[in-house]
Design a protein around this nucleic acid. Sequence first.
RNA 1: GCCGACGUAGCUCAGCGGCAGAGCAAGGGACUCAUAAGCCCUUGGCCGGUGGUUCGAUUCCACCCGUCGGCACCA
Length: 579
Amino acid sequence: MSDESNQPRSILIGVAWPYANGPRHIGHAAGANVPADVFARYQRLAGRNVLMVSGSDMHGTPITFVADQRGTTPRAVAEENHAIIADAFRRLGCSFDLYTTTLTENHYRVTQDMFLRLLERDFLFEQTAIAAFDPEAERFLPDRYIEGVCPHCGYRAARGDQCDNCGRTLDPFDLIEPRSRLSGATPIPRETTHYFLDLPKFSEPLTAWVESKKSVWRPNVGAFVLNWLREGLKPRAITRDLDWGVPVPVEGYEGKRIYVWFDAVIGYLSASIEWAERQGDPDAWKAWWDAEQDVDTIRSYYFIGKDNIPFHALIWPAMLLGYGGLELPFDVPANEFLTVGGQKISSSRSHTTDQLPWLHEALDLFDADALRYFLTINAPENRDTDFSWDEFLRRNNDELVATYGNAVHRVLRFIGARLDGIVPQPGELRDEDRDMLAQVDASFERAGDRLEKVRLRDGLTEAMALAHRLNRYLDVSEPWKRIKDDPERAHTSLWVSVQVIAALRTLTAPFLPFSAAKVHMYLGETSAFEALEWRPVEIPAGRTLGETAPLFRKLDDEELAALLDRLNPETMSAGEPEK
RNA sequence: GCCGACGUAGCUCAGCGGCAGAGCAAGGGACUCAUAAGCCCUUGGCCGGUGGUUCGAUUCCACCCGUCGGCACCA
């Protein structure tokens, strides 16, 4: 461990803001929420001052379209989905200090303040361009809401931004026979004026900054960002012809709104401010944001999917640079995608064919820790990883239940049955006992090192390795035999085993908080689970253990099939003819 | 088309200049405290292909093939 005084004290953890046009699927949790929460919980255990914020992104065109389809208001759509998403995150165990929305007065104020400051400092400019207007719906249309025939390949359902068939990037007016996906009308070109963020002005400072981050960031993130910088940054429109969003605080822009990607990233700042106000200490947010502070006392981490890299590693830093005085990201540990059958999970497509549940549905069926385990041990940290029910079932049964859950259970049950649940007095320690205990210290060190570097799946692997070592230690020590012919040996190995379980409780706490809290109880701990620290703690001999039960549920194929059937009765029902 | 990432054991994934790794699957063994769980051993790989750099390449470079992603108005 390095000198404590050099350790950053304030850790800001920003978690990607889910878009409230629908529920989120488990891929979102895999890419952002689970890793962020694991990291946050570890940092708290390590004694850091953690602020973890996020919220639902409530504005934007897609939400207004959903509202139109359902004959309701954008606000109603966004609030309904926000409720589902927020509840799912809560059940997943996400320990946000604040999970809010972009619909708050505070967020509007902070967003407009950012806008005006950038405008005042000449980082925004106005530009008039031709955009596609739907004369029937009386709306400007985003490119992807226009359909037509691809001029390159003749594909009939090409979108205005891209052809799904040949993959080429398109301009909506390239399309042959363009039509609005809203009304079917032929879109007409119409002039409209918008504000643009002058990204090219930030090219130099951003390049220098990104170069300085290369050793910390994951290679895929650095490579992606440098590629953008090499190709040259382009100005980016930050307002839209829309009535659902943060108003543009400039005269003549009454019919326009600030665009979602611009205001959503500001959410990290506005949520921090909202948190501080709720604490009754309105300036408290500055501990995580004031760049004037001693350089190494603040670190901000942004947990996102790879699709969000430009916003968090370029645009948001540019905005922060333009605003001035605010802390830039320390790391942007972007994850690749969770795929199903090797295919990207489409957020627009439902789970009817691929059997992938929404997050809230998955939590109806499975324990949060089982999901967190799978999503961490198979996390897409370096490349896309594949989700399948077979793998989920196997890892749950053969790893989580069999290795870790069983290690805990066999020891605690044995002490309960043979020793009245009282932690025995150890005799003299032998080499094998000392080795086992040395493994505990090594595990804290190694897992801590991995977690510090945001290598979360490696961190979890270290914790699981200790569970495996405990199983081996037990097989060698055989307390179930020694209890008959050498009780002191049995007592010693059981005492050692309890110490290892206490360590496993802490080591797994960031990853599997629900089961860790159970182990905490089983161990008869009276201190608060939340007060744990990232280090071994001795469970004294003579302690009476709490009631014990198996930590995890084993799944079998039939049960899994039945659960999925419940999820998706219409596509799973037997005898239903194909298509 | 341009840019990028990836391609490692049957499967899911690590490793990334110095004798190819883990888990699962497959085969064998000793045990029985435990959710028939756990432990030990074995089998299994031209590290996508071809060239190059190097004393040495799975690792670095180039090209090719394959998969996926991005290409700035989806967030």
